[in-house]
C-alpha cells in the first residue's frame, strides 16, 4: 500500500510539470498582457516597457516558465498586475470555493444516492420514470440557465434568498448556489446509482442475504448498497476536482468571490500570474482527489489490493 502511494505520488510529478507548462504557454498565446492594462488607449511605450521588465515579460517564454516554477517552489505565486499577491487572492478565494464544493458534494451524496437507490429498487414504476425524466431535464439544461432561473425566482421574485452572495460567503447563502453547482453531477450520480443498484439487486449474494432472513433494510444497506457504491464513489471523487474548477459559471451568477471568479477575472484581464497560479493549485487538487479515489477503491472492495 505504502509503496503504491509513493509510486502514485511520483507519477504526479510529470503530470504537474506538463500541465503547468501547457497552461503557461496557453496564457502566453492569448496575447500581450500589457496591451489590455491601459484600457482602450494605447499604453505609453515607456510605461509598457517598464512593466515588461518588471514582470519579466521581455525574456523568452522558457526562461519565464523556469523563473516562475522556481518561485512557485518557494511559495511565491507572483503578483497580479494590481499589485496584490496571488497567494493572497488564493487565501480568500479557496476557502469560499471549498465551502461551495462541499455543499455541492453533500447534495450529490445525500440526494443523488437516495434517489438512485429508490429508483433502482423500483425500476419501471412511476417514481423511477419520473425521476429519470427529471434527471434528463437537469442534464440537458445548462447550468447558467438553472442558475439564473433559480436566482430570478427564489432571489428576485420571491425574495427567499439573497440574489447576490456577500463577500464572506457564509454557508447559508451558498446553499442554493451549491445546489445549482451540483445539479448536473447530482443527476449523473442518481442515474449511476440507479443502474448499479438495479444490476446488483439480481446478484446471488443479495438472494443469499434474503435467504438468511435479514430484514429488507439490512439487505439493501449492508449488502446491496455497499457493493453498488463502488462506481459512484469514483465519480464523486473525480467530481471534486471538476466542481472546484468548474464553479466559474455558478460563481459569476451569484457573485461569489471564489476560485472561479478569480480565474474569470484573470483571464479577462490577461493576468498570467493569477491564471497559472490558480490552475496549478487546481491541478494538484485534481491529482490528489484521483489518488484518494483509487485508495478508497481498496477500502470499498477488498478484492482490490495495491502492491
Amino acid at each position: 500500500m505504502g509503496r503504491y502511494v509513493i509510486r502514485r505520488l511520483l507519477q504526479m510529478i510529470p503530470v504537474f510539470f506538463g500541465t503547468t507548462l501547457l497552461i503557461f504557454l496557453m496564457v502566453n498565446v492569448m496575447g500581450d498582457p500589457i496591451a489590455g492594462l491601459c484600457g482602450d488607449r494605447q499604453c505609453d511605450p515607456a510605461t509598457a516597457a517598464q512593466l515588461r521588465t518588471e514582470f519579466g515579460l521581455d525574456k523568452p517564454v522558457w526562461q519565464q516558465y523556469l523563473t516562475y516554477m522556481g518561485n512557485v517552489f518557494t511559495g511565491d505565486f507572483g503578483t497580479a498586475f494590481n499589485g496584490q499577491k496571488v497567494t493572497e487572492l488564493m487565501a480568500t478565494a479557496f476557502p469560499i470555493t471549498i465551502r461551495l464544493t462541499l455543499i455541492a458534494i453533500v447534495f450529490e451524496v445525500v440526494i443523488g444516492i437516495t434517489l438512485g437507490v429508490v429508483t433502482g429498487l423500483r425500476r419501471g414504476r412511476p417514481v423511477d420514470t419520473g425521476v429519470l425524466i427529471l434527471t434528463l431535464v437537469v442534464i440537458s439544461v445548462p447550468t447558467f440557465v438553472t442558475g439564473l432561473l433559480l436566482q430570478l425566482l427564489l432571489g428576485v421574485e420571491w425574495g427567499i434568498i439573497k440574489p447576490s452572495v456577500s463577500p464572506q460567503a457564509p454557508v447559508d447563502e451558498l446553499i442554493v448556489p451549491g445546489l445549482v453547482l451540483a445539479s448536473v453531477s447530482l443527476a449523473y450520480v442518481t442515474r449511476l446509482t440507479r443502474t448499479s443498484i438495479a444490476e446488483n439487486a439480481r446478484a446471488d449474494y443479495v438472494r443469499t442475504a434474503v435467504a438468511k432472513g435479514l430484514p429488507r433494510r439490512r439487505v439493501v444497506v449492508r449488502h446491496l448498497l455497499r457493493n453498488s457504491l463502488i462506481p459512484v464513489v469514483t465519480f464523486i471523487g473525480t467530481d471534486v476536482g471538476a466542481l472546484m474548477g468548474g464553479a466559474i459559471v455558478t460563481e459569476r451568477i451569484f457573485n461569489i468571490h471564489g476560485v472561479g471568479y478569480q480565474l474569470y477575472q484573470g483571464i479577462l484581464r490577461q493576468n498570467t500570474q493569477t491564471v497559472v497560479g490558480f490552475v496549478t493549485v487546481l491541478v494538484l487538487v485534481f491529482l490528489a482527489a484521483n489518488l484518494i479515489v483509487d485508495l478508497l477503491y481498496a477500502v470499498l472492495d477488498p478484492r482490490i489490493r495495491y502492491a
Binding site: K212, G213, L214, N227
Partner: peptide, 25 residues
C-alpha cells in the same frame, strides 16, 4: 416468513463465490 428464514429453514446455494458477499468478511 422472514423470521422463519435462517432460523427454521436455511438454504445452501450452488456457487459459493457469487453467493457470498464479496465485500464483507
Amino acid at each position: 416468513r422472514r423470521k422463519i428464514r435462517g432460523q427454521e429453514m436455511a438454504m445452501i446455494f450452488q456457487d459459493a463465490l457469487s453467493s457470498l458477499n464479496p465485500v464483507l468478511s
